[in-house]
Amino acid sequence: MSNAGKMPKEEGIDHSVSLIREGYLYILNKRRSFNSDIFETRLLGKKAICMGGKEAAELFYDVEKFKRKDAAPNRVVQTLFGKNGVQALDGQEHQHRKEMFMSIMSHEELTRLTDITKKQWALATTKWEKADQVILYEEAKEILFRTACEWAGVPVQASETKNLTNYFSAMFESAGAIGPTHWMGRNARNHAEKWMQELIEHVRQETITPPENTALYRFSGHRELDGNLLETEVAAVEVINIIRPIVAIAVFINFITLALHHYPEERKKLQAGDEKYAEMFIQEVRRFYPFFPFVTALVKKDFTWNGYQFEKGTLTLLKHWKN
């Protein structure tokens, strides 16, 4: 596609409705109509730049040119990410918080996560043998919630599991919604954060003692760059940032099942036990059925790329999936 000359511009006062209506296809459709990997539009009353393609992705993730803080719409922060989580940080703050997350990502801990996952699925499939029907998506969410909590050192009563699973799934199910669905997502996050805050306070008061290598233990004791303990509210957001994405994998489990339904010949290839092929299959599912249509950032400073001007503070959207 051509990248020469003035940046293509979508005419009109605002195109937020088009973005909501076209969803995943919005940026793709406009890139095709402009025959360009980049174009300018207006969203929520402000100038925005939309991009796609390999070169654009490399540019977008240049931390010297773009920042994530304050880029996500408030409704996404209120449902999906939570306030002051790692996704909204830049620079040293982001690196320091990221190190907290990476401290629980050792080979041993990831192996333990794998073992817990296998155990939880085995327990579930044994139960399914006696069931008249299985609603895979609902079952997968609950399995993954139990898996995530066990791995993160988060104690959960059996009687709480279903409600808590629904709270965590509502966060990603309502991320881009408006109206009642959005408010249900915010309400779910409020309940989940309150529950997690209480657990963190118990850990700090030593009335609960999770294993030292778990997220609940590590995040409860984490200190920021100024030496102070992470605020309880923020620590809760970050523990949720461990559990919620694991629960969200239920979406891809459904997509995997759908893919095997549409392409039954893939089942035999996967059953052959080739791990490399299995990984390729999973990555193709992620590409073909993307979770979100784009990611957002703000231009950090004025700069020029391929002859195009980027002004500080401009909202930029990257379409991070291929057709």
Rank of each mutant, 00 (worst) to 15 (best):
A4P: 03
G5F: 01
G12F: 01
I27M: 01
R32Q: 10
D37W: 10
R42E: 02
K54D: 06
A56N: 05
Y61S: 00
A72N: 09
N74S: 15
R75M: 09
E93M: 08
E93F: 08
H96N: 15
R97I: 09
M105S: 02
M105H: 03
E108S: 05
W121Y: 09
E129F: 11
A131M: 14
I135E: 15
T147D: 01
T147E: 00
A148K: 00
G153E: 04
T161E: 07
T165V: 04
Y167M: 09
M171P: 13
E173A: 07
G176K: 12
I178E: 15
R189H: 06
K194M: 09
Q197I: 14
E198K: 12
E201L: 15
I208P: 00
P210Q: 01
R218Y: 02
F219Y: 12
L225Q: 11
D226R: 07
D226Y: 11
N228Y: 09
L230N: 15
T232G: 04
E233S: 14
A236C: 04
V239Y: 04
R244T: 11
I253H: 14
N254Q: 11
N254D: 10
I256R: 03
L258H: 12
E266M: 14
L270M: 07
D274W: 06
R287M: 05
F292S: 13
P293E: 12
V295G: 01
F310W: 10
K312Y: 06
T316S: 02
K319L: 06
